[in-house]
């Protein structure tokens, strides 16, 4: 089992609030598209601050 950051693109408002709190610099906003790099450690800080709830750290099989 492993954890991963999921982006609900239909919810994302591409505002960049998540980018500004990411301790690893793993998030990048490319116009209306939020990208996650390998640097992501699934800490979930971005998921907490998202004003819309577009980010979620989930357990995957």
């Amino acid at each position: 089992m492993f954890t991963m950051l999921n982006i609900h693109r239909e919810v994302c408002g591409y505002c960049g609030a998540c980018v500004s709190v990411c301790p690893e610099g793993a998030l990048e906003l490319i116009d209306a598209y939020l990208s996650v790099s390998d640097a992501c450690v699934n800490c979930g800080i971005c998921a907490r601050v998202c004003p819309l709830g577009a980010l979620e750290v989930t357990n995957e099989e």
Binding site: A17, V21, G25, V49
Partner: peptide
Amino acid sequence: VESKFARWCGIDTAIPLAELETC
């Protein structure tokens, strides 16, 4: 607010969770 460019220059610009107002 994203402040990525300075990060690429080696400067930590990450905002502490408690000090980011989510709007």
